[in-house]
Computed example of a mutant assay.
Amino acid sequence: MAGVLDNVNQRTRLVGENRLELLLFRLGGRQLYGINVFKVKEVLPCPPLNAIPGRNPVVRGVAHIRGGTLSIMDMNQAIGKAPLEDIRSSFVIITEYNRTAQGFLVRGVDRIVNMNWSDIHPPPRGAGKAHYLTAVTEVDGELVEIVDVEKILAEAAPVNEQISEGVIEDGISERVVQKHVLIVDDSVIARKQVQRVMQSIGIQTTLKKDGREALNYLLDMVAQGQNPDEALVMIISDIEMPEMDGYTFTAEVRNHPDLKGLHILLHTSLSGVFNQAMVKKVGADAFLAKFSPDELARQVNDRVRAITGEDLLEQS
Rank of each mutant, 00 (worst) to 15 (best):
E155A: 10
E155W: 05
A156S: 14
A156V: 07
A157P: 00
A157H: 02
V159G: 03
V159R: 14
V159M: 12
V159Q: 12
N160D: 15
E161F: 00
Q162Y: 12
Q162S: 11
S164W: 09
S164G: 15
G166Q: 10
G166Y: 14
G166D: 06
G166E: 08
V167Y: 14
I168Y: 11
I168W: 13
I168A: 09
E169F: 08
E169Q: 15
D170L: 11
D170E: 12
D170M: 05
D170Y: 10
D170H: 14
G171C: 03
S173C: 07
S173F: 09
S173H: 09
V176G: 02
Q178E: 12
K179N: 07
V181S: 10
V181C: 03
L182I: 05
V184T: 09
D186F: 11
S187M: 09
S187I: 10
S187K: 15
V188S: 10
V188D: 01
I189R: 13
I189S: 12
K192A: 06
K192T: 14
Q193T: 02
Q193Y: 10
V194Q: 04
V194K: 03
Q195R: 08
Q195Y: 04
R196M: 09
R196A: 00
R196H: 10
V197G: 08
M198C: 15
M198T: 06
M198I: 01
M198Y: 12
Q199D: 14
Q199R: 15
G202Q: 04
I203M: 01
I203L: 07
I203D: 02
T205P: 04
T205H: 04
L207P: 03
L207F: 12
K208F: 13
K208Y: 11
D210V: 12
D210F: 13
G211V: 10
E213W: 07
E213P: 01
A214S: 02
A214W: 06
N216Q: 10
N216F: 07
N216T: 15
Y217L: 07
Y217I: 04
Y217S: 12
L218N: 00
D220R: 13
M221R: 08
V222E: 00
A223V: 00
A223M: 03
G225W: 02
Q226D: 10
N227S: 11
P228C: 07
P228G: 08
